[in-house]
Amino acid sequence: MKTQLHIDWTSCDGRGLCAELLPGVLDRDDWGYPVARGKAGRERTDVPLRDADLEAAQEAVVLCPKLALSLHERKVQ
């Protein structure tokens, strides 16, 4: 099992709190929306997390002003 940070793009407004809380995981694009660092394809929507980032990710889920973030477990395939 691996924890992923899911970004609901239909809710996200690019306020940038998550990128501050997870600077090693998320960057921001021209318009302020989060970009997963070093990830390609759909891993930019379901971002795999290292255990060290879990706590900060939980904080980001709680503080996201648009409730656009969620954590979920995905079986490693």
């Binding site: 940038g16 709190l17 501050e20 302020g32 904080e59 503080l63 002003p65």
Partner: peptide, 17 residues
């Protein structure tokens, strides 16, 4: 907070809190 801007040394999540 709604503007999405940090305030001097305060990051955005601190403003939110």
């Amino acid at each position: 907070n709604r503007s999405g801007r940090p305030l001097m040394v305060l990051p955005r999540f601190s403003i939110s809190l």
